[in-house]
Design a protein around this nucleic acid. Structure first.
Length: 271
DNA sequence: GAAGACCTGCTA
DNA sequence: TAGCAGGTCTTC
């Protein structure tokens, strides 16, 4: 579920909550696989009594920088999220100094909490964050020309650019009017520019809306305060198969690209 | 590239 | 009840 805008929203709200500069007093883990290869007791010993020095984000990773050069990297995968309140699908709870509690829920149990002294070992595998200066036009343009891949799976490849997932890939391609199966080095410079700016636009709008919430269920995305983000009907492409394109009013189509459900307007995004 | 694995909840 | 899901990883 969470892509760059959702993760950014969560990090901002955790900061606002005053998580930074607090000490971790205790941790409870209900799904031990998520902290592998550590056991609960060794994991707990590693992080307890350390201070959260700094919170940040890189792509879809949440980075807890702790005292004594320790790091906790959290990836929410499909259904992870943080909350101020406990709920049915909680997989962990952290008690911080000052009585602040954080609950981590993850119905599908795909999320990962990685304790490490060396965050680069994970973060170096990522390409530049989609909203960072390092994701420059020059970088984008050069790789687009060099690679011979379908554009959608390329956008989803975190080693190319970090933070884009299935929703925002579909949104950006729709906005730029590019077919998701188009091969990168066949896309002309004008379209590349449209796509480059569309990526920024859809991510920024996502953040302004505090993320995107598609469904109604409990596995649906909620921010730290339990609130939904941008509603489904504000999304232009993702999940709109069978509905009318908001630009040309032709029927949107659901297709599969690299095994991922993908929605396009076959007229606007002709191949 | 494709397909399966990891999991559970929701929808058709 | 079958099929699908915002992500990634492994193995063809």
């Amino acid at each position: 579920m969470p892509e760059l805008p959702e993760v950014e929203t969560i990090v901002r709200q955790l900061k606002k909550r005053g998580v930074e500069n607090r000490q971790i007093l205790a941790v409870r883990i209900d799904w031990p696989k998520m902290i592998a290869p550590y056991s609960y007791s060794s994991f707990s010993k590693k992080i307890c009594n350390e201070k959260i020095v700094k919170l940040s984000r890189n792509g879809k990773w949440i980075i807890f920088e702790l005292s004594n050069n320790k790091f906790l990297l959290i990836h929410l995968r499909m259904s992870g999220s943080f909350s101020k309140k406990p709920s049915k699908y909680d997989r962990a709870e952290i008690l911080l100094s000052g009585g602040v509690k954080l609950y981590y829920k993850d119905s599908r149990k795909f999320g990962k909490w990685i304790f490490t002294y060396n965050p680069s070992s994970i973060l170096n595998k990522l390409g530049p964050d989609a909203l960072s200066k390092d994701f420059s036009w020059k970088y984008f343009h050069e790789l687009m020309n060099k690679k011979n891949r379908m554009i959608k799976p390329f956008l989803l490849d975190q080693s190319f650019v970090a933070g884009i997932g299935n929703i925002y890939a579909d949104e950006a391609l729709w906005l730029a009017k590019i077919h998701p199966k188009k091969i990168t080095n066949t896309i002309n410079e004008y379209d590349q520019k449209k796509l480059y700016s569309s990526i920024h636009e859809v991510l920024r709008i996502g953040i302004i809306n505090r993320g995107t919430s598609l469904g109604k269920g409990k596995s649906n995305y909620k921010d730290l305060n339990g609130k939904s983000g941008r509603p489904k009907d504000m999304v232009k492409a993702y999940g709109r198969g069978g509905k009318n394109c908001e630009r040309c009013s032709n029927k949107m189509e659901k297709i599969y690209v690299a095994q991922r459900g993908t929605t396009i307007c076959p007229i606007c995004q002709s191949f």
